[in-house]
Write a protein that binds this DNA or RNA. Sequence first.
DNA 1: CGTATTCTTGACTTATATCAATGTCGGTGG
DNA 2: CCACCGACATTGATATAAGTCAAGAATACG
Lengths: 233, 233
Amino acid sequence: MIVAIDRTVIKSFALFDSLADDELDRLLAHAVARRVPLGGAVFEQGAPADHFFLLLNGHLKVTQVTEDGQQIIVRVVHPGDLFGFAEALRRPDYPGSAIAAAESLVLSWPNDLWPRFVEKSPGLAVSTMQAIGQRLEEAHTRIREMSTQEVERRVAQVVLRLAKKAGRSEAGGIRIDFPISRQDIAEMTGTTLHTVSRILSAWEAAGLVEGGRQKLKVTNLTGLTEILTRTKP
Amino acid sequence: MIVAIDRTVIKSFALFDSLADDELDRLLAHAVARRVPLGGAVFEQGAPADHFFLLLNGHLKVTQVTEDGQQIIVRVVHPGDLFGFAEALRRPDYPGSAIAAAESLVLSWPNDLWPRFVEKSPGLAVSTMQAIGQRLEEAHTRIREMSTQEVERRVAQVVLRLAKKAGRSEAGGIRIDFPISRQDIAEMTGTTLHTVSRILSAWEAAGLVEGGRQKLKVTNLTGLTEILTRTKP
DNA sequence: CGTATTCTTGACTTATATCAATGTCGGTGG
DNA sequence: CCACCGACATTGATATAAGTCAAGAATACG
């Protein structure tokens, strides 16, 4: 499905900062846009990695399922993020699945176009490497958190991060802009939905957040932030 | 300290596969070699990131210290690995410290040489991106393990990985080729030295490993591997 | 409406951390 | 050279955070 693509939107993404208009146009000329309905998959774990993608609109969860059937959420993709970039990992298949957490719009390119783009626009290679480096650092942060912090803090971190990246200002707080379940949060923090539920209930009682079925609103940002700095008794 | 560098050794590293001899020579012409004694730091967390590095020889631990003083080992660097590549992370400082776990030999280049290298040798950019992608995938693997696996398995994973990457075949098993403490293993797996000690003691009793002060030898590789596949009762 | 998710909450279990004590190795200096 | 010191390791006892098991309530959906 081809859709008219607004160049100015894409130009606003940090990834394409360095590109001149004509370079960007060349890139877009080869892109295919695709609308993904809520719950739909852009690609599935294990499938041959023949394309790479850019999220224009919406939100995606990238999930992995372990051999024994446990699922984790590797990352959440927000507009402007590159994803499904398996070639960088020297992999023939996608290491996870990309599922639309909200109705989304993605651009895709065939993998074999990448070398040509880089040749014509070296700045793109640098931006991309920085984007991947950024993600590496995020992964290290998450490892550090999982190693040293208790569950409640990790949940607070994740919620704050989501509020920042996918928050919509609203009367009385910041609403997470897509449906998110306790299970999802558990899979992002390495815990169980039960523990997440208990934590959110406690927070709700303390007036920090407002919950609901696949809904979450942060009503007291500073209060939540204080949980991060809280020191063991 | 400048040392004569053996081109053939470096050419054997996957990172430089794609480079022609003259490209490699140009690279090496600008490199500075430095010997790092056991316990010495190649760079320290928070220091301005003005160089990037290649490990020729030895082994390094890259550590991070959290604000509240807890330390974790982010990764272990083996010969042929690029490290201290902060520019890719778009960071002005090093996010961790690189400490020699054994007497080591590193090559270093000033950051600002990087763009010139890439311009002359585009293959280098691709290799580097793949190297970083590889590390991203490793980080995701670690996150997955920390989310879903119990401590004993994680320790088994780490020990097996070390045996593979830094193992020296020896009478009766595979010895980890550098001094490694229980504390180190704990910092790699997100647990405490006490728990690691107990696990290794149990393994020793079962004839899987042989321990010792900062020493570790895997005496039954297949037995250890079975721990990974062991299913919950 | 009834059926299926999602969420909540209580009771109980357990893996792992914490606390505490002691043991052992290996290098250093008297 | 040997005694001592500091770093590393072991091991037991106890505490606790978080997981598991179980039941039910709330919400969305066809």
